[in-house]
C-alpha cells in the first residue's frame, strides 16, 4: 500500500472536457440542437427557444435545490406536492379568504417553506431516510392541496398578476430572468461558498464531515427548507402562468426534476454534481421534448426519450467510471 499509488499526472484541459459529464452533455446538447433544427425549421428560432423557457422554469427552479440535495446524499420526492399545496394556498387565501394578492403570494411562499421545514426536521433531526420521509410528505402535501381546495380551482387573477408568468422583461420572459438570477446564485452557492463545500463533503463522507466539525444536521435541514421555499416560488410563477390554481398541479413533476439532475451528471449516491450539469440536463430534456413535439410526436410521448436518455446516461457513466 505504501508508495504504489502513483499520483495520476494532470492531463491537458482539452482531454478533460470530454471526461467530465458536463463536457459530454454539452456535446450531446449541440448534437440535439443541430439534429432538431434539421428536422424542423421552426425549432431554431429565438421565439421558440425563449418560449420554451416559460415551460421549464418551474422544473428548473426545483432542480436547483434538488441538485444540492442529491449531492448531499439525499432526495426530495415531495417537490411536486409542495408546489401544488403552495399554489392552492395562494388561490385559497386570495379568492376564498379575500386577502390582498401580495399577502396571498407571501403565504404561498411560506407554505412551500413550511413543507420544506417539515421535511428537513424529519430527515436531519429525526433521521428518517429521505426517500421514505418525502414519499410520505408527497402524499400528505398533495392531500392538503385537495383538502384545502376541496378540489376547486381558483381563477380570475387580475391582469397585473400575469406579469410573473406571462410578462416580459425586455425581450425575455419574466420567469426566465428570475430563473437566470437563481441559477447564478445556486451555482455560486454550490461552487464558491463554504456552504457548498459542506454539501459536497457531506455527500462524500458524512462521518468525515461530522468529524471535521461540519454542522451536518443544519446543512441538511437548510437544503430541504430551501427546496420547499423554491417550490413556493415555482407555485407562484406557475399560477401566474396558467392563471389558475389546481390541487392536482405538478403531479409527477418530481420525476422530471430528478431526471434532469441525474442526467446532468449528479451522482444519485451523492458527493458529486454541479448546477451547470443540471442546467444542461434541463436544456436537453426540454429541447428534446420541444423538438419532438415540433416534429409531430405527441405530447407526453416525449417522456419515453427522457427515460431512455436518463438510463443511458447513467449506464455510460458507470461504464466509463469502472474502467
Amino acid at each position: 500500500m505504501t508508495e504504489t499509488t502513483i499520483a495520476a499526472p494532470e492531463r491537458s484541459r482539452r482531454a478533460n472536457l470530454l471526461r467530465t459529464q458536463e463536457g459530454v452533455l454539452f456535446v450531446v446538447l449541440v448534437a440535439i440542437i443541430i439534429g432538431l433544427s434539421l428536422l424542423s425549421d421552426r425549432f431554431l428560432t429565438v421565439n421558440n427557444l425563449l418560449n420554451q423557457t416559460r415551460l421549464f422554469t418551474e422544473t428548473a427552479l426545483l432542480a436547483l435545490p434538488m441538485t444540492l440535495i442529491i449531492i448531499s446524499g439525499g432526495i426530495d420526492l415531495s417537490v411536486g406536492s409542495m408546489l401544488a399545496w403552495s399554489a392552492v394556498m395562494l388561490g385559497f387565501s386570495w379568492q376564498l379568504v379575500g386577502l390582498p394578492l401580495p399577502l396571498a403570494v407571501l403565504i404561498c411562499l411560506l407554505t412551500g417553506l413550511l413543507g420544506g421545514v417539515i421535511n428537513g426536521l424529519l430527515i436531519a433531526y429525526v433521521r428518517v431516510p429521505p426517500l421514505i420521509a418525502t414519499l410520505a410528505t408527497l402524499a400528505i402535501y398533495r392531500g392538503f392541496s385537495f383538502g384545502i381546495s376541496q378540489a376547486r380551482s381558483a381563477r380570475g387573477f387580475p391582469e397585473e398578476f400575469a406579469f410573473w408568468g406571462q410578462g416580459q422583461v425586455g425581450p425575455f420572459p419574466t420567469q426566465f430572468v428570475i430563473l437566470v438570477v437563481l441559477i447564478v446564485i445556486a451555482h455560486l452557492v454550490l461552487s464558491r461558498t463554504g456552504f457548498g463545500r459542506w454539501v459536497y463533503a457531506i455527500g462524500n463522507n458524512e462521518v468525515a464531515a461530522r468529524y471535521s466539525g461540519i454542522p451536518v444536521e443544519r446543512v441538511k435541514f437548510t437544503l430541504y427548507a430551501a427546496s420547499g421555499l423554491m417550490a413556493g416560488l415555482a407555485a407562484f410563477i406557475f399560477t401566474s402562468r396558467v392563471t389558475t390554481t389546481r390541487a392536482d398541479a405538478a403531479t409527477g413533476l418530481e420525476l422530471d426534476v430528478i431526471a434532469a439532475v441525474v442526467l446532468g451528471g449528479t451522482s444519485i449516491f451523492g458527493g458529486s454534481g454541479s448546477i451547470i450539469g443540471t442546467v444542461l440536463g434541463l436544456l436537453i430534456i426540454t429541447l428534446l421534448r420541444n423538438g419532438l413535439l415540433l416534429t409531430g410526436v405527441k405530447g407526453d410521448a416525449t417522456f419515453m426519450v427522457i427515460g431512455l436518455v436518463l438510463i443511458l446516461a447513467v449506464l455510460i457513466n458507470n461504464l466509463v467510471r469502472r474502467r
Binding site: 410521448a301 416525449t302 417522456f303 419515453m304 427515460g307 438510463i311 447513467v314
Partner: peptide, 22 residues
Amino acid sequence: ARIPAIVVTLGMLSILRGGLIL
C-alpha cells in the same frame, strides 16, 4: 449494470408512460 434501482425504475416509468401514450 449496477444502476441504483431508483434511477432505473424512474427511467422505466418515463419510458413506459411515454411509450404508452405514443
